[in-house]
Amino acid sequence: MNFASDNIVGASAPVLQALSSANAGAMAAYGGDEITKRVKARFTEIFEREVSVFFVTTGTAANALALSSAVPPYGLCVCHREAHIIDDECGAPEFFMHGAKLAGLPGVGAKLTAEGVSAYLESLPKAVKQMPPKALSISQVSECGLVYGLDELKALGQMCREHGLAFHMDGARFANALVSLGCTPAEMTWKQGVDILSFGGTKNGCLMAEAIVVFKPELAEALDYRAKRAGQIISKGRLISAQFEGYFADDHWCANARHANRLAKLLSDGLTQLPGVRLAWETQANEVFPIIPAAMDKALRNAGVLYHPWTELSLPEAEKVGPDEALIRLVVSFATREEDVHKVLDIARSVASRQAAE
């Protein structure tokens, strides 16, 4: 029962079938094939406008290259202090930005507010010794499982316009956020001011496929060259883009996300019905962050349930994790079985019943 992440499972059947079909015969290399052309056109349909699309193999590559197009070497990119780009990518964004820096700000649930970012920007000295802010990056879904609402995105987009920042969205779990909000991809991105998007597929059914989707044309000008220098122009490019063809077919990508979100809610609701269990943050997508008794944590691990402990850094101010408690993260994927969710809940209920009897 592995709830460590949503990138620990393989690819979904429609993605593998599309990949297998694309494998047959010979096609033009380096993205010049018909499959890649079709998938790029599909992105334009999905986002309801002309977009530039660059396919890469990892989310780190997508984030680092996207930000390199928006932030010069002397610039600053603002993000949450627990954002994936600052905590989990080994300095790749700074490396590809050729020395530009990331500035991590606090925020409950690993989310930023327009007011908070604006206050930080206005506090910076306007002198050559200070790296000027050039971009804002947010994670949708956040590192604490929260989804930015459309009003929050709109406010952030407006703030970026006012301060002259490019607006980047790390959409590693883009589909999970999308179905949670019940909106369109356009409504969650460029209509709220997003300029460039790291569009994730790997966590939601793809084998190894991510995309940089650019809404602001000038940010796309050098990305082909940047991607080539980063080793991300794949000779057999059709085997990357074909994954997205299977991913998008028959609304498969959203169906996968709905499944993961639904089971996360089932898990979340079941845990919070137990005495001594509460949520650190609301379950809004496919991640659950419960604060549980230490005995329950031990029992789950002894039963072979895999998951990660989580940081308390972005808890609400009034929330504390006690000495006999544990804050954990449980991630549900498109391939998670409902029976495994029930097994976890059965173990947790058993511990709660035993403690109640003592």
Rank of each mutant, 00 (worst) to 15 (best):
N7Y: 14
I8H: 15
P14R: 07
L16D: 01
L19G: 00
K37N: 15
R49G: 12
T57D: 09
A64R: 04
A64G: 07
G75P: 07
L76P: 10
L76H: 06
D87P: 14
G91A: 09
M97P: 11
H98M: 13
A100K: 01
K111E: 11
G116S: 06
P125W: 11
A127M: 13
V128G: 11
Q130D: 14
L136K: 02
L136A: 05
V141E: 10
V141L: 09
L146T: 07
V147N: 05
V147F: 06
G149M: 10
D151F: 10
D151E: 14
L153M: 10
L153R: 01
Q158M: 13
M159L: 11
A166E: 06
F167P: 01
F167V: 05
S180W: 01
E187F: 03
T189W: 01
Q192G: 06
D195I: 06
S198F: 04
F199P: 00
A209G: 05
R226I: 05
A227Y: 00
A227I: 02
R229Q: 15
K236F: 10
R238K: 08
R238N: 08
L239Y: 01
L239P: 00
L239I: 01
I240P: 00
F244A: 03
Y247D: 00
D251N: 13
H252L: 10
N256T: 03
L263V: 02
L263R: 00
A264I: 03
K265R: 13
K265N: 10
L271P: 00
L271D: 02
P275Y: 08
V277S: 05
L279M: 13
E282V: 08
L300G: 01
E317M: 13
A318V: 12
D324L: 13
E325R: 02
E325S: 08
F334D: 03
A335P: 01
T336W: 07
R337H: 14
E338P: 10
E339V: 11
E339K: 12
K343L: 12
K343Q: 14
Q355V: 08
